[in-house]
Design a protein around this nucleic acid. Structure first.
Length: 271
DNA sequence: ATTTGACCCTGCATGC
DNA sequence: TGCATGCAGGGTCAAA
C-alpha cells in the first residue's frame, strides 16, 4: 500500500537507473490493470530517451521522448530495478528494458495501479488538475485546512484524506497525524479551531517527512530486489493497533469506521 | 454542493 | 487439510 513516502522513495530509487537512458524493449505480460495498458505503449516507448522522473501526489511522472508516462502503484503495486535475465515472477506485469541490462519491473498483484500517458501537462491532465497542494510544500498549512473546512460536517479524518484538500495523506498517515495532533478523527471538520489545524498540518508534515527519511535508508532494496517497499519500519502509534494500549497514556485504542476506512484512535488522548 | 457507498482485485488471516 | 468469509486499500463514479 504505497502511500506518498513510498512513492517518493520509489522515485528516488529508480531515477538514477533510468534518467538519460534509452528504452530498448517494453514487455507487457498483463494489460488488464485498473485501466488497460495503452495499446501503443510498446511502440511509443522503444527507442526513446527517459527524462527526469517526477512525482505529483501518488502519481509518478516519467518523461519519455516527447511524452510523459503517468504511473500509479494503486494499493499493491511496486516498481523495482531488475537485471537482464532475471525471470519475471507472478504479477510482474510490465518491464521497461533500458541499456546496460537494467529493467524497470512493475509488480502489482491486485492490479489497482495503472500506467498511462499524461494528457496535456501536469496541471492539465484531468487526473491531476484538481489535486490540492503537496503536503510538504508551503501551500499546505493549517490555515488552508481551517478555511476549506468551514461549514463542513464531514469527519476530520476523511476530510484530511480528500485529495482536493491536500494530496498524499492516506489512511495510515491520516490516523497517525490525528493522533500526534490530539484530534478525534470523528470530529466534524468544520468544528475544529484554527490553532488545532495548525498543529494537524505540522503533524502531517512530520509523519510524512519521517517516513521519507526512513525510506532513504532502504533504497538498496530497489536494486537488489530484496524485499518490497511497503510500510517503512516507522513506529506506528495507532494504525493497525486497535485494542492495544496507547503508547502515550496506556488506554485501549479504539477502532471506528469513517468513510469506509478503519480509523484507530485513543479516546483519551484525542478529542 | 456535499456526502455516502459501491466497485475494481488478490493475498492473507480467521474460523469452521 | 480444505473451504468459505471478511478485510485491506486509492481513486473513480454514481446515487442520495
Amino acid at each position: 500500500m504505497p502511500e506518498l513516502p513510498e512513492v517518493e522513495t520509489t522515485r528516488r530509487g529508480i531515477a538514477p537507473y533510468l534518467q538519460g537512458r534509452e528504452i530498448r524493449e517494453v514487455i507487457v505480460r498483463e494489460r488488464r490493470l485498473r485501466t488497460p495498458v495503452p495499446v501503443d505503449l510498446e511502440d511509443a516507448l522503444v527507442g526513446r530517451q527517459i527524462g527526469e522522473p517526477g512525482r505529483r501526489a501518488k502519481y509518478l511522472t516519467i518523461p519519455v521522448g516527447t511524452r510523459t508516462l503517468l504511473w500509479h502503484l494503486g494499493m499493491s503495486g511496486s516498481l523495482r530495478i531488475a537485471r537482464l535475465g532475471e525471470l519475471p515472477k507472478k504479477h510482474d506485469h510490465v518491464d521497461l528494458v533500458v541499456d546496460d541490462g537494467v529493467i524497470l519491473r512493475y509488480h502489482d498483484p491486485r492490479r489497482f495501479g495503472f500506467v498511462d500517458w499524461l494528457r496535456g501537462g501536469v496541471s492539465d491532465d484531468p487526473r491531476l488538475a484538481r489535486l490540492g497542494p503537496e503536503p510538504l510544500s508551503p501551500d499546505f498549512d493549517g490555515e488552508r485546512l481551517y478555511r476549506l473546512s468551514r461549514g463542513r460536517r464531514l469527519a476530520v479524518k476523511p476530510f484530511l484524506m480528500d485529495n482536493a484538500v491536500v494530496v498524499g495523506v492516506g489512511n495510515i498517515y491520516a490516523a497517525e497525524a490525528l493522533f500526534l495532533a490530539g484530534i478525534d478523527p470523528r470530529r466534524p471538520a468544520g468544528r475544529i479551531a484554527g490553532e488545532r489545524y495548525a498543529r494537524l498540518a505540522e503533524a502531517v508534515r512530520e509523519v510524512l517527512a519521517a517516513a521519507i527519511t526512513q525510506g532513504g535508508t532502504t533504497l538498496r532494496d530497489f536494486v537488489s530486489g530484496v524485499g518490497e517497499p511497503g510500510y517503512f519500519a516507522q513506529r506506528l502509534n495507532v494504525y493497525g493497533r486497535a485494542g492495544e494500549p496507547c503508547r502515550r497514556c496506556g488506554g485501549e485504542l479504539r477502532n471506528v469506521t469513517l468513510g469506509q476506512r478503519a480509523s484507530v484512535f485513543c479516546p483519551r488522548c484525542q478529542s
